[in-house]
Amino acid sequence: SAVVMEEGSPGEVPVLVEPPGLEDVEAALGMDRRTDAYSRSSSVSSQEEKSLHAEELVGRGIPIERVVSSEGGRPSVDLSFQPSQPLSKSSSSPELQTLQDILGDPGDKADVGRLSPEVKARSQSGTLDGESAAWSASGEDSRGQPEGPLPSSSPRSPSGLRPRGYTISDSAPSRRGKRVERDALKSRATASNAEKVPGINPSFVFLQLYHSPFFGDESNKPILLPNESQSFERSVQLLDQIPSYDTHKIAVLYVGEGQSNSELAILSNEHGSYRYTEFLTGLGRLIELKDCQPDKVYLGGLDVCGEDGQFTYCWHDDIMQAVFHIATLMPTKDVDKHRCDKKRHLGNDFVSIVYNDSGEDFKLGTIKGQFNFVHVIVTPLDYECNLVSLQCRKDMEGLVDTSVAKIVSDRNLPFVARQMALHANMASQVHHSRSNPTDIYPSKWIARLRHIKRLRQRICEEAAYSNPSLPLVHPPSHSKAPAQTPAEPTPGYEVGQRKRLISSVEDFTEFV
């Protein structure tokens, strides 16, 4: 048969007729292969192709491409040299491709048809291009793949890379869960390890502090508590009631339409708007009261037996805890006409967050109470924005700035309102402590230090009264110190430094 060459192609190359033996071998191979691939376009007849790359030819070592076609129900084999250009295909004639002069020997084609199974398996396991790669995943090629499931790999992101949580363990979102698992493993320790309690022994800490320079003076030496005195035992138990972190309780009120001037209507609300609910979820963490331990979680007086509701929101960081007394989460009882059960919590909070959804101005004093010092007013606006402002009593104007209003988005509203309420509550605590000038409020841990110092002074006084020969370590507060001759004046800087060093040991009130 003659071949018409394309323009620009090399000279004529004689194409030899395939021997009958080659056709029989390739026909047997075509019957084993699956003929249901995917359909081509209507211009080209339905056909199945599979590209198999052999590394070497037997005796020649030339890479070839073998295409199996099922045109007219008769499979045909096409061998081509890759750099050459194939002729145009037609549905009426068999596929013809040019070969190099080196394939002119018909014996070479017979060798190609009689490829060993080793070469076929190696060509099938190679990388296939384009559409033949999808075909190689079918059941027909499963014989050339190794048996057994593939090893499982770690989760992959859409980009093909490992997620960040699997790369950096410290930033993994499941870090707290692993800590819980470690605690569970520790709890399952053997009885021999049960006595080993991690941490620092208080006796060891005391020993280090006792021999430090801070205890060089007799006034700073630790003293032993009497065991037989019940009054001192009660004082030590009272110390446990003062937490070592700051605590805040903040009221949250929802004002519906037409309720801006009605205290009873505001306290009777059992739910609010959708934006109000989203605002609550951002204030803190939802907790169930019956599962809380009052000595570990500050509840601000809420009952854990269901008297004040089942849930509330709280927030904490390293040095403070805040609980929100939310009116809509507290039960509304029919027998309580004046809502006294709610007001006994909300009316005693220094700061209230008022979500004013009424469309009218909310005035300070609508919720009557002796300790309502500051109101954080949240007014929802259009386009997911809110107006946040402050209202306070006249005696609080020096501590709280009420002249600045803020426009905040719904997303950042819980954070801004919480921070403003916490700052206002700190100012309210300082303002409330002014009624007792001898006990200015600095912080909870300073209050613990003052309680310890008062307890020490009482013990020293009782020891001096029981044994008059012992001198008083600290003179009583009601006694007057003996007159001392004025010492020589020293520079102001040295006096300030000495006073600062003494105050650092005794108390921190002056620095606050």
Rank of each mutant, 00 (worst) to 15 (best):
I446W: 08
V404L: 11
E384A: 08
A487Q: 12
G309P: 15
H345A: 11
L225H: 11
S262G: 03
N425W: 02
S477H: 12
L501G: 13
I377S: 03
E228W: 08
L289P: 15
I459E: 11
G258T: 03
A424G: 04
R454L: 12
L302P: 12
A405W: 15
V505C: 12
P331F: 03
Y254K: 00
R450A: 12
S477G: 13
V416M: 08
W315E: 05
L239I: 09
D361E: 12
Q429V: 07
V323G: 03
L289D: 15
H345T: 13
K368N: 15
R434F: 08
H474W: 07
S443I: 15
L381F: 04
G284N: 04
P486E: 09
M320C: 15
M320W: 14
K406W: 13
N425T: 14
N412C: 07
F371R: 14
T379I: 04
P471D: 12
S219W: 08
E270M: 06
F371A: 12
K444W: 10
I250C: 02
C340L: 15
Q237R: 06
H338L: 13
V252W: 00
K499S: 09
Q230H: 11
D439H: 07
L413I: 04
P491L: 11
E233P: 04
D240Q: 05
T312L: 10
V505E: 14
Y493L: 12
A265K: 11
A483S: 09
E494P: 13
V255C: 05
A424N: 03
G496T: 11
H316V: 15
Y355P: 00
T490D: 12
H474K: 14
L470Q: 15
D401H: 05
H338Q: 13
L413M: 05
H431W: 10
K342W: 05
D336R: 10
S466N: 14
D349Q: 05
G492Y: 07
K499D: 14
L283D: 00
Y383T: 06
D334E: 13
D317V: 00
M426H: 03
Q484W: 10
Y313V: 13
A447K: 15
G282Q: 04
A427I: 07
I446A: 14
N348Q: 15
E288N: 10
L399K: 04
D295I: 03
D349S: 09
R434L: 14
Q230K: 11
W315R: 03
L253V: 08
L253R: 01
I266N: 03
H451C: 14
S389L: 05
G306Y: 06
V323C: 07
H325R: 04
E360Y: 05
P222G: 10
D240V: 02
H325V: 06
D334C: 13
T438S: 12
I319C: 11
P491D: 12
E494H: 11
H431M: 14
Q429F: 07
L253K: 01
F279I: 00
E278P: 01
L280G: 01
S262R: 05
I407E: 05
C305N: 13
P482E: 13
I223S: 08
V408D: 00
R393K: 11
P437M: 05
I266M: 03
T485P: 14
N348V: 05
E360R: 06
D334N: 12
E288S: 12
Q321G: 05
E233D: 10
Q293D: 14
A417G: 01
Q259A: 03
P489W: 10
D308V: 09
L449K: 11
V388F: 00
E397W: 04
V505N: 14
D334P: 13
R434H: 10
D395H: 09
K343I: 14
C314F: 10
A405G: 08
Q370E: 15
P471V: 12
M420L: 05
D246N: 09
R498I: 09
T509L: 06
E360A: 08
S231W: 14
G301I: 04
I223L: 11
A427Q: 04
W445E: 15
R454H: 15
S477N: 12
P442K: 08
V404A: 11
I502T: 14
A447Y: 08
Y355H: 00
T332E: 07
K480V: 13
T312R: 07
D336G: 14
R450H: 07
M330L: 06
T379F: 03
S229L: 11
I319T: 15
E510I: 05
Q484G: 12
V351R: 01
P442R: 07
L299I: 08
S409C: 05
H431L: 13
R458K: 13
A322F: 08
I326F: 03
A481P: 11
I287E: 09
A421W: 01
S231T: 09
G256Y: 00
L286C: 07
A327R: 03
V495M: 12
P414D: 00
Y465S: 09
S433I: 07
G256I: 00
Q497K: 08
G300I: 02
D317L: 00
T312D: 05
R456L: 05
H248P: 04
G398R: 13
C385T: 11
M396C: 13
D308W: 07
Q484R: 13
D295V: 04
G492T: 14
K249M: 12
N348P: 05
Y254N: 00
H271Y: 15
T332L: 12
K337N: 15
G256D: 05
K363H: 12
F371P: 13
N412A: 08
P414W: 00
